[in-house]
Design a protein around this nucleic acid. Structure first.
Lengths: 236, 236
DNA sequence: GCGTGTGAAGCTCTTCACAGCT
DNA sequence: AGCTGTGAAGAGCTTCACACGC
């Protein structure tokens, strides 16, 4: 199914970041070996990852930083504007909204939503927090490309369903739960759950779960032999 | 090398979460099929993942929720106390420090560190923010099991190096950069980089990178066919 | 009969070696 | 000569089918 490995996409993001840093330092040329070292992967891997999307280098020469950067941005869809709503504007949601770097890639926060009366109406980063009941109309009246979900875990499934129903097709889920085309837990399950998940078709969910990260870290700290350490073996 | 797939550990964390929710609802029995459905994976996968660590079920019966929960906590190292320092106490670091759920697993924040004069000395969640120069002594005088790194990306490599030098053996890296046994960028590279990375041996790094998550989401929103959607095909 | 546990098959991803261009 | 691009080999992960125990 996946003719391009998911892990390859994560690595492309890393390469892009490295290219940006090289560009700020006015370094114009690089190579798969150089990128590999900076990214902590093998040079084979770099070349293979790039090869999924085209031929960006020159044999014998390497890569030209601005060109490869431009191409990776195009591949990743970062040369266009993305309108984003944030659902859940507590401490985490606000930290996300204010985190620098998102606007560098034309990610624009266009709406903030919450249920808390203390938050609705408040200004956060030039935007007024709206009640989540307004989400549906907002998504219909505005172009919304993706939504960030930063509500407490017990509300995540319902909030995600609301986003999908409203028409959001990409969700970055910060809540430590699995969201998806499931009947909402704690609801009477009697009536014919007709076509559950039909509106989830084509919806992309990416998870950013820091509690899970903590637990993985705990496990690997206890079992370090099960994880490849960041100490390089040899780049090629 | 990895006799247990990395992805399996992530899934175990998910199973554990589901078991906790079942327990709060007083559900005592479950099965690989049930867990699979809730976790969004196949039942084969659930059984295989559990089999890496033991035999926790009863044939023909399924699993007993409290037993499987206890066993998974033991496997993941969540039945012991973990002392955590947070390096970087800006908006993101504070959101992390205040995020509920960490203390449920005996993750205890024992020290907060930053360089900003505005933050050092301030109280955050019952702790006084210390200057990062105190990190080394702090780690030596206190038992510190892991560190969370939430500084701006340009400071991440140096801060990570400081943590490792101080003796921190597990790092949860929130900064959108690769950290590791590299010479700090922007430093004169002249003298013999003797044994770079020697002190990184055995250090575990887990990344929680939400900017990367945004970019992956952008890519998969543009190329949905390259990603398995959350819509289930059939659980078994 | 039912659901777990597991060796084996199948598939995806990574590593490799080298052909090909500059 | 040097470094990319890529088919092929190898490793690792997932899926499967079925034996086993309740």
């Amino acid at each position: 199914m996946a003719e391009v490995p998911t892990a390859a996409i994560s690595r492309l993001v890393t390469y892009l970041r490295i290219l940006e840093e090289l560009e700020t330092r006015d370094i114009v040329r690089t190579s798969s070996t150089d990128l590999a070292e900076r990214a902590g992967v093998s040079a084979f891997q770099v070349r293979k990852d790039l090869a999924y999307f085209g031929r960006f280098g020159t044999r014998g020469m390497g890569y030209t930083v601005p060109i490869l950067k431009r191409e990776l941005m195009r591949v990743l869809g970062l040369n266009q504007t993305w309108n984003v709503v944030i659902v859940g504007v507590g401490r985490l949601g606000q930290a996300i909204a204010n985190y620098p770097g998102a606007s560098d890639y034309q990610f624009q926060y266009v709406g903030l939503f919450d249920v808390s009366p203390e938050l609705v109406g408040r200004q956060v980063r030039d935007l007024t927090v709206r009640h989540i009941a307004e989400l549906r109309d907002f998504v219909r009246e505005n172009k919304v490309d993706m939504g960030f979900l930063a509500v407490p875990p017990e509300r995540a499934q319902d909030a995600a369903q609301a986003m999908v129903t409203a028409g959001v097709r990409g969700i970055l889920n910060f809540a430590p739960v699995v969201i998806g085309p499931r009947p909402s837990e704690g609801r009477v399950d009697g009536n014919a759950q007709q076509e559950i998940g039909d509106d989830w078709r084509g919806v992309i969910v990416e998870n950013v779960d820091f509690l899970a990260g903590m637990k993985r870290l705990a496990f690997y700290t206890l079992n370090p032999h099960l994880k490849d350490s960041p100490v390089p073996e040899d780049t090629e």
